[in-house]
Design a protein around this nucleic acid. Structure first.
Lengths: 229, 229
DNA sequence: TCAAAAGTGTTCTTGATACACCCATGC
DNA sequence: GCATGGGTGTATCAAGAACACTTTTGA
């Protein structure tokens, strides 16, 4: 590995797949591109990494600039580097996978994104670049992940009902789950704290609210506990 | 995302964590660096990605150049981009995770690697750059992965005994497994084909040889089957 | 004949699945 | 009083865990 590095260097970007959950459906943030290439097409939020900026920080910055979102769960997904994935020149993209609460809070477009919006994952249009492939990879990651790590809670309000979380799991896994079995298993983990609060809602019986005990989960994790739903 | 990209660009490398299995121990390939920085220290094989080269191809090429290894199972692991991970300048590294058969076949050093050798993962010395962290990530990936995907077979000869694969799982998972239960579960998958061949070995009872039925596995996978050990 | 690893079944315990009715509320 | 979603327990079945002795070979 001599340090005489004579090649032209590839440009480096980050792209974010931001998931949200609202009205019983899993959603993803897309931006409509304001510039060429793929002008006016929908794409994932993202942009160039600055030379003095950690990758994660770049992802968070782009998210905030393009959609106004912050306070997200963020994790690196995969790096896409096919030589012709960008028609202009070679661009390497480190893709991130993000989860936010309150998908109802509509993202606001900014900078070079003309518009930002939530789409149901089942209904995303054709995407720019290889972003369709990136989204697919993120979905697979999410589906695999919610069973072994308590990331689903990142998509719900801090206080949620058991029905909400079940509906979340059903939307992500794409199949119905048995209500009694789901609750039994979830409560047996002993990681949900029932609050002294109930939903006060529309024309039906109030539901118990819970929150997820992150501290307890982390302490159990250190002892080798593995979340499994 | 304006295309006026005014920043200096980070350099891009690939680094490979190559696992092998031999004498009941999980091993990893390290090279002794021939140049600064970290001259004479042990590091992961790797090097710069060429501008017209896919990332996977770069990983394979570096592996071959630095260690002579080919015919490996290769998969992208994670991208490391801390701003000071290389003392010279900012370098982004896409780390790969590789599995090879016959860890007894000693890798041969070449190009700018002064020397290449297998180390037991339990006994690796201090590594250059952030390669210790990369190795740790690869180990976690491997441990998680062998339970849900039949990658363990990539570390064994094409023909192997049940004891060999059990010893492999024990080495990777770091705990002993019950012989009868392990065999029962493994054979119940119906993916191992018993050969009409036995080990002809040192002072003990000959053992049945098997091979893994890759074709059958792939066909089952398409039907939704999930390997689980 | 001894040492060393190969090979082989059953019992018990645990977790997964399937399944149906009453409750509290707002309209 | 009715429509809507909230809440609860048991019986069956499948998979995981625990466990010890006999066989084959080469030295």
């Amino acid at each position: 590995m001599p340090f005489t590095y004579e090649y032209p260097r590839a440009a480096l970007t980050v792209d974010c797949v931001v998931f949200g959950f609202d009205e019983g459906a899993l959603k993803v943030v897309l931006i409509r591109r304001g510039i060429e290439p793929f002008r006016n097409q929908w794409a994932l939020p993202g942009g160039f990494v600055r030379p003095d900026e950690p990758l994660d920080a770049a992802a968070l910055r782009e998210l905030r600039e393009e959609t106004g979102l912050k306070e997200v769960y963020l994790e690196q997904l995969y790096t896409f580097g096919a030589i012709d994935r960008d028609p202009r020149e070679r661009i390497i993209s480190v893709a991130y996978f993000a989860l936010v609460r309150r998908a109802d809070h509509l993202p606001s477009a900014a900078t070079d994104a003309a518009e930002a919006a939530w789409f149901e994952v089942e209904k995303v249009p054709q995407l720019a670049f290889d972003h369709g492939e990136i989204l697919e990879a993120a979905l697979q990651r999410l589906r695999g992940k919610i069973r072994w790590q308590p990331v689903g809670f990142e998509l719900l309000p801090k206080k949620f009902t058991l029905s909400q979380i079940q509906s979340l799991y059903e939307a992500i896994l794409g199949r119905e789950l048995d209500k009694r079995n789901f609750r039994k298993k979830l409560l047996a983990l002993d990681l949900l704290v029932p609050l002294e609060e109930f939903t006060t809602a529309a024309s039906k019986r109030p539901a118990q609210l819970f929150h997820f005990d992150q501290r307890k989960y982390q302490s159990l994790t250190r002892k080798g506990f593995i979340f499994d739903l």
